[in-house]
Simulated assay, not measured.
Amino acid sequence: MNIILIAGSPSAPSRSTRLLQYAGEQLALRGHRSGLLQVRDLPAQALLHAEFGNAELKAAQALVAAADAVVIATPVYKAAYSGLLKAFLDVLPQDGLAGKLVLPLATGGSQSHMLALDYALRPVLTSLSARHVLPSIYVTDAQVAWSAEQGLTIDSAIVQRLAAGIDNLSASLLALQETAVTEFAPVHFSQVRCSV
Results as ranks from 00 to 15, higher is better:
49 H>A: 15
53 G>N: 15
54 N>P: 14
55 A>H: 07
56 E>P: 03
58 K>T: 13
59 A>Q: 15
59 A>F: 11
60 A>I: 12
61 Q>V: 14
62 A>P: 10
62 A>T: 08
62 A>Q: 15
63 L>N: 09
63 L>G: 14
64 V>Q: 11
65 A>L: 09
66 A>D: 14
67 A>T: 00
68 D>V: 02
70 V>P: 02
71 V>C: 07
72 I>Q: 08
74 T>A: 13
74 T>R: 10
75 P>Y: 09
77 Y>T: 00
78 K>N: 09
79 A>I: 09
82 S>H: 10
83 G>T: 04
84 L>R: 03
84 L>H: 03
84 L>A: 00
86 K>V: 05
86 K>I: 04
88 F>P: 01
90 D>A: 05
93 P>Y: 08
94 Q>N: 12
94 Q>L: 11
95 D>Y: 09
95 D>P: 01
97 L>R: 02
98 A>F: 11
98 A>N: 14
98 A>W: 07
99 G>D: 10
101 L>C: 11
102 V>F: 01
103 L>R: 05
103 L>V: 06
103 L>D: 12
105 L>D: 05
108 G>E: 10
108 G>W: 09
108 G>S: 07
108 G>T: 03
109 G>M: 12
112 S>V: 12
113 H>M: 02
113 H>T: 02
113 H>Y: 11
117 L>D: 05
122 R>A: 14
124 V>A: 04
126 T>P: 07
127 S>I: 11
127 S>R: 13
127 S>V: 08
127 S>F: 10
129 S>G: 09
129 S>P: 08
131 R>G: 11
132 H>V: 04
134 L>F: 01
136 S>M: 11
138 Y>V: 07
140 T>W: 01
140 T>A: 10
141 D>H: 00
141 D>V: 00
141 D>A: 02
143 Q>K: 09
144 V>I: 15
144 V>H: 03
145 A>K: 04
145 A>G: 04
146 W>S: 06
148 A>D: 13
148 A>Q: 08
149 E>C: 12
149 E>F: 14
150 Q>H: 13
151 G>D: 12
151 G>N: 01
152 L>D: 00
154 I>A: 03
154 I>C: 01
156 S>P: 04
157 A>T: 00
158 I>C: 06
159 V>N: 04
159 V>E: 05
160 Q>H: 07
160 Q>A: 08
160 Q>G: 00
161 R>M: 06
162 L>Q: 05
162 L>S: 04
162 L>W: 00
164 A>S: 15
164 A>E: 14
166 I>P: 00
166 I>R: 04
167 D>Y: 08
168 N>I: 03
171 A>M: 14
171 A>L: 12
173 L>W: 05
173 L>R: 03
177 Q>R: 15
179 T>D: 02
180 A>E: 11
180 A>D: 14
180 A>S: 13
181 V>A: 15
183 E>W: 06
185 A>P: 01
185 A>L: 09
188 H>G: 00
188 H>L: 02
